[in-house]
Design a protein around this nucleic acid. Sequence first.
RNA 1: GCCAUGGUGGCGGAAUGGUAUACGCGCGCGACUCAAAAUCGCGUUCCCGUAAGGGAUUGAGGGUUCAAGUCCCUCCCAUGGCACCA
Length: 832
Amino acid sequence: MSRTYDPLAIEAKWQKRWEDAKAFEADLSDAKEKYYTHVMFPYPSGDKLHVGHWYNYGPSDTFARFMRMQGKSVFSPMGFDAFGLPAENYAIKTGVHPDISTRKNVETMITQLKRIGCMYDWSKMVNTSTPEYYRWTQWLFLQMFKNKLAYKKKGNVNFCPSCQTVLANEQAQEGKCERCGTDIIQKSLEQWFWNIKKYSQRLLDGLDALDWPEKTKLMQRNWIGRNKGVQIPSKIKDLGDVFEVFDSVPQTFMAQTFTVIAPEHPLVEKMVKGTPQEKEVLAFVERMKKLKATEKYNFEEHVEGIFTGRYVENPFGTGDLPIWVASFVVMDYGTGIVHCSAHDERDFAFAKKYGIPLRPVMFPADPNEAEKVKNLEYCYAKDPDGILSKPDAFAGRKWGEVREDIISHMTKTGLGKPITQYRLRDWLVSRQRYWGAPIPIVYDLEGNPHPVPEEHLPWVLPTDVEFKPTGESPLRNSHEFKERTEKIFGKGWTPECDTMDTFVCSSFYYLMYLQTEGFGPKAESRKLKAESFIDPKIEASWLPVDMYIGGAEHACMHLIYARFVMMALKDWGHVSHDEPFARLVHQGVITNKGAKMSKSKGNVVSPDAFVDKHGSDVFRMYLMFMGPFTDGGDWSDTGIKGIDRFALRLYKLIEKNTVEPYAEKKELNKKVIQDSQEVLSLLHKSIKKVGEDIAGFRFNTAISALMELLNLLEQQECVSMETLQTLTKLLAPLAPHLSEELWEMIGGSGMMISERWPQFDPKMLESSTMTIAIQVNGKLRGSIEVDASATKVEIIEASKKQENVAKFLTDTPILKEIYVPKKLVSIVIAQK
RNA sequence: GCCAUGGUGGCGGAAUGGUAUACGCGCGCGACUCAAAAUCGCGUUCCCGUAAGGGAUUGAGGGUUCAAGUCCCUCCCAUGGCACCA
């Protein structure tokens, strides 16, 4: 039989029919059985889609289609994360305005995405770089400002002195500029922050109820980094200044003999002012600030410090503690000042280097063994006050329990009080970049910030700017922007010239899809839907996103920011849910010869040639068949032939049973064909397995189950119409175009897209006979076929008679007989 | 360094503590063909054996169990995340 399956014609045909029928548009007014599934939206690049896009979107669509066949009202939108560096860099290079290139890229990308055959509801599309969208990005900033979660302070940014530009963290790999390789310096600038730290505990608590990969939840937990300890009040001798010290290992507080302070701590300057060491200490501080920018930390080599000449006044009744400025102290964690003891590796190295006396309080007393302190065999030994006087007071107790005891002891005696610290830092949202949403803030003549009133939103991004980097925010050279500000607010008023991090745009986009008018490429022709941020009824019924799919690299960025924003929006009464994403799945990464695909490496694999040759369905299925969706893998096209054959064989099977010159058989089919017990049994097993596998994102095994079914059906003389229909339905989420075509060939009514997933009959899963494996002393010695109704005794007796088994049983007493229902018999005999 | 995940044929991979290597690729042999491609059939973990069968085998080594790829311990390797957080 000649090849008649023409994927390109079939796919074009069904894509048009789906579009004409508006088959993918969700009715948001009806949230009964709603299912909101979404893949993290892409950046609209001018390049062709690569294999990674297909690997992500194809399987995600298979899942969406499966949920639709489960009878859900599936909402599967798509949009574009269109602000950001690539468009700006492109503009710097070519002079083409990012708005023009972005809109063009969006159009190109939509065309390409449609070719995958995904059931996206394009009528609800968002593009974050359109004013209709970023109006709400700015609105969000104003809410943060109004609710005192947005504030300005000095912060460090990565700056490339050669490119004269601020770099994002991702562009600052290993301290070097991504583009020119120059060493990056830290520049201290006034920056806008959002107070995500305030939500640390809620972000932590919320994780428990989420159906997310444990790995991702753990990463967020570590990132938030909760640490319980004590806060110890301390006083600087002679100056009288009081400060707090955070200690999360108070078990060793009696051993503390010195104090270290971060170089950038404001108290340093005060402590040394007018003292003989002032000049030297301040010089050290300046050197440390620069050092930190480039040196990767290695405390054994780079631990450095200088004595301030000041002391902490006798905090534990064991004497004054000298205060040192030390390179390793983190300003942003705890209070930036730490009491040190022999029982910390780092403190120990520091003390040795500068000859600071140590006073170990653990067994053994040898400070060289001090790092073993966390081992349970060590216990608190000395206690000058007699409060904890028994040397074995903590013997046999867990380290954490000892800590609890010490904390309550310190609280009782007024030495300190319990406190919880978090490692999470506030979110730096300002960027000294052009292609982003302008921060809607203006400054009065004294330089005080004022919010741009909501009626002036969108606070439009000016177009009269020079893209060439000068080291300053590009908006600074826009006359229009300055004039606009003065015209509205008064002479001498100036606009904020920084734009917002693109992670702000994506922190709430899952809500924007629900704005029924959409923010598409032609959104400017639509009426601005500015009445409210979101329709509360729609938000209440459609959120949270039921299934969210995207890369694991966002675990501690986008996926934390979105949760934070959702919680804040809830607190302000704009939404009714705490969490945006109920279930989360990460796709794996496709590499090329072990390396991540990237344009700069020139190793990006284009799917075009494969799609042109085999069609979208085959290419989608091939990517799914490669291995588990969450694993990714190294790219290779060696197996695509197998899927190509699979698709062709499916087509031929249907053809054989339906199309001329087999009309006779078709007639026959309608009336008489009765599938064998074997066929029906496997069919029902397949319904169960394929369904469960797709629901669990195990597309590879779903496909292999279908292949097994096909292998059996091919061996049959004829197959009943009902079975062929079921087979076609099982294929539908995996190969949507082909299944529509097959459905039509079979004479199915309507489109496959409207069909429901078939039901399996549990009774059909059982077969009339079963194969029982027989083991003797754990080794497989044979197997028998028995009737499904056979009893345990019958099966064991039959097993013993099996030829190959029997020969092991002669002359040897049987010690034990085990029967595992429907599976095996295990006979234990005496060893020779 | 710390935390997490993983290591199965020539390759991608499959296996609720119960017949390891499903499914596919590749390879070998055969059919069709003047021939090739495509397609179809058979075989394919390794070793011994014509076969029946036997032995070995899931990174290495131990343990629990009638039974371990799966559970426990030690180690090796790979990947991902964090890394001056007191």
